[in-house]
Computed example of a mutant assay.
Amino acid sequence: MSTNPQKLSSPETQELRREAGKLVKHLREQAGHSQRSLSAEIGSLPYTFVSQIETGRSRVPPDQIPVWADAFGIDARRFLLMIMRFYDPETFAVLFEEEPSILSGEAFPELLASRDNPELPGHSSGVTRQSDGE
């Protein structure tokens, strides 16, 4: 039984992972880390794991969210909310449909920075919710 309906091979999932990777790279650079120094900070060997996440080939392990957030100098819940929109968009949409600033990404300036920098994920690439019959 699969616990994650997101298929890694789907183009949508791959694009979301790339967008999450851009965000992770932005947060890493903002915190002043190289891939090697972030890897050392989070206790991950080899350092190429950071590269795999930044390119969308992997994702931040759920049990490591607090460690990564600490390395970025941000609150773990804030980091989770930022990346959850990419890693589990269906659940994210259900959880935050009543909180428009979180759902749209406006609550996270880091996501909106892409309006000026196409290398970063923007809220336009954020969660869109499909309804039945569309």
Score class of each variant (00 low, 15 high):
residue 2 S to L: 10
residue 8 L to P: 05
residue 11 P to S: 08
residue 12 E to P: 07
residue 14 Q to D: 05
residue 14 Q to A: 11
residue 14 Q to M: 07
residue 15 E to T: 07
residue 15 E to Q: 12
residue 16 L to W: 09
residue 16 L to D: 08
residue 17 R to I: 09
residue 18 R to T: 10
residue 19 E to T: 09
residue 20 A to G: 03
residue 20 A to N: 07
residue 23 L to I: 06
residue 23 L to E: 12
residue 25 K to T: 09
residue 25 K to G: 04
residue 26 H to W: 10
residue 28 R to G: 00
residue 28 R to A: 02
residue 29 E to F: 07
residue 34 S to V: 00
residue 34 S to F: 00
residue 36 R to S: 12
residue 36 R to V: 14
residue 36 R to H: 11
residue 36 R to N: 11
residue 39 S to P: 02
residue 39 S to Q: 01
residue 40 A to M: 00
residue 42 I to P: 00
residue 43 G to K: 01
residue 44 S to P: 04
residue 45 L to H: 02
residue 45 L to A: 05
residue 47 Y to Q: 08
residue 47 Y to I: 01
residue 48 T to H: 06
residue 48 T to P: 03
residue 49 F to W: 08
residue 51 S to V: 12
residue 51 S to M: 13
residue 54 E to P: 07
residue 55 T to P: 06
residue 56 G to H: 12
residue 58 S to C: 14
residue 60 V to P: 11
residue 60 V to H: 12
residue 61 P to D: 05
residue 63 D to L: 11
residue 64 Q to H: 12
residue 65 I to P: 05
residue 65 I to C: 10
residue 65 I to E: 04
residue 66 P to S: 08
residue 67 V to A: 02
residue 70 D to R: 14
residue 71 A to I: 01
residue 72 F to P: 07
residue 72 F to Q: 11
residue 73 G to L: 02
residue 74 I to P: 08
residue 76 A to L: 13
residue 77 R to F: 15
residue 78 R to A: 02
residue 79 F to R: 10
residue 79 F to C: 04
residue 80 L to P: 01
residue 80 L to T: 05
residue 81 L to I: 02
residue 81 L to S: 03
residue 83 I to G: 01
residue 84 M to V: 00
residue 85 R to Q: 09
residue 85 R to V: 03
residue 86 F to D: 04
residue 90 E to L: 13
residue 91 T to M: 06
residue 94 V to M: 14
residue 94 V to N: 15
residue 95 L to T: 14
residue 99 E to R: 13
residue 99 E to S: 08
residue 99 E to P: 06
residue 100 P to H: 10
residue 100 P to K: 08
residue 100 P to N: 06
residue 100 P to I: 04
residue 103 L to I: 06
residue 103 L to S: 02
residue 104 S to H: 11
residue 104 S to Q: 10
residue 104 S to P: 13
residue 106 E to T: 15
residue 107 A to E: 07
residue 107 A to G: 02
residue 108 F to K: 05
residue 109 P to H: 14
residue 110 E to P: 14
residue 112 L to Q: 15
residue 112 L to E: 15
residue 113 A to F: 14
residue 114 S to Q: 13
residue 114 S to H: 12
residue 117 N to F: 08
residue 118 P to T: 03
residue 119 E to G: 14
residue 120 L to M: 15
residue 120 L to A: 13
residue 121 P to M: 04
residue 125 S to K: 03
residue 128 T to A: 13
residue 129 R to A: 10
residue 130 Q to S: 14
residue 132 D to Q: 12
residue 133 G to K: 03
residue 134 E to V: 02
residue 134 E to G: 04
residue 134 E to W: 01
